[in-house]
């Protein structure tokens, strides 16, 4: 197991190197020139060249890459072209809101969606099943920003229970944190819940037809015990895969959710950086997202051991 983890961790190095090369090339081949954006309307071509030189953008591409990669090896992601702040500082400012939003979304989604999926499979064909699946289709089909606006309208403006926007750190004020994170987590969680509920239902339906489930019923076990201990545990491998892969979906949704609820997270940082071609920030954020995703996949793979004793690494 330890050897497997080490092997997987070592395998992330070439993956991250490929991501770094790809991101760097993609950005630098785009037609946008940050020097021209910075220079503004009054600058002469000489001044634009000077700004380009100061930013190091006039050097050959391979030199720019080597310079960036060299700094990267030392943990230096560079500085934002516009604000002049270190990329690590910018990412550091944004990690907590995005992390907490993602975790809260996953928590709400898993806590609600798995039981709903199990119940839908257990009561297959009934109104309960149809209601759960209708909600799932709704959650999957309606865009995150629409759900966000509806929640703001209902939860903030009509009921006045939650603030419209913003974020409070969990370290500063737990109550403020909960009130600020609830609506965004629900908005972002809708699609995720739908995905997990549908997967849970489908997998559970398969498992519930297995002989050992029939045997469990036959030997007189309570329904709850059969569903949770026998059926759900065996259905968890594909469900946990969906949960893991669904994080990619979440990262996409995070961008929209953070914009709608004005949460200063990594998603907004990425979009803002892309819109003004802030190369170092885009590169840094994509590397962080890629690393997170690679590590998450590793965690998902390791979680299989918990659900299926036959799996060994």
């Amino acid at each position: 197991m330890i050897a497997y983890i080490i092997r997987r961790l070592l395998a992330t190095i070439p993956i991250m190197a490929l991501v770094a090369v790809f991101v760097f090339m993609l950005l630098h081949l785009s037609p946008t020139d940050p020097a021209l954006i910075i220079a503004g309307d009054f600058a002469t071509p000489e001044q634009v060249d000077e700004i380009r030189r100061q930013l190091g953008l006039n050097a050959p591409l391979y030199q720019q890459f080597l310079h960036w990669a060299g700094n990267l090896m030392q943990g230096d992601l560079g500085k934002s072209i516009y604000s002049g702040l270190p990329v690590t500082t910018l990412i550091g400012q944004r990690v907590e809101p995005t992390l907490m939003l993602t975790l809260c979304t996953m928590l709400i989604a898993i806590v609600l969606a798995i039981p709903l999926g199990v119940i839908a499979a257990w009561k297959v064909g009934t109104w309960i099943d149809r209601t759960v699946m209708t909600l799932a289709v709704f959650g999957f089909s309606v865009p995150v920003f629409v759900i966000g606006y509806l929640l703001i309208l209902g939860g903030s403006r009509k009921l006045g229970w939650f603030p419209v926007q913003g974020y409070t750190s969990i370290l500063d004020d737990f109550g403020g944190f909960v009130s600020h994170i609830t609506l965004p987590a629900l908005a972002l969680g809708a699609v995720y819940m739908a995905l997990i509920a549908r997967m849970t239902r489908a997998t559970m339906l398969e498992v519930l037809n297995e002989d050992y489930v029939r045997t469990a019923y036959a030997k007189g076990l309570a329904t709850r015990k059969v569903l949770v201990k026998h059926a759900l545990k065996n259905a968890m491998v594909p469900i946990s895969t969906t949960i893991g892969l669904g994080v990619a979906l979440l990262i996409g949704g995070v961008v929209v959710t953070e914009t709608v609820f004005a949460i200063p997270g990594l998603g907004r940082l990425t979009v803002d950086a892309v819109l003004r071609t802030d190369y170092p920030v885009i590169q840094g954020v994509i590397l962080v997202f890629s690393l997170t995703y690679v590590l998450l996949n590793l965690l998902v793979d390791l979680s299989y051991v918990l659900f299926d004793p036959r799996i060994r690494y």
């Binding site: 703001i152 903030s156 403006r157 603030p163 419209v164 926007q165 914009t259 709608v260 609820f261 004005a262």
Partner: peptide
Amino acid sequence: RYIPDAATASQALMAGE
């Protein structure tokens, strides 16, 4: 406080935030 979404900013103003 930079709020990029116009609808959210409007609601924040109306809510007194």
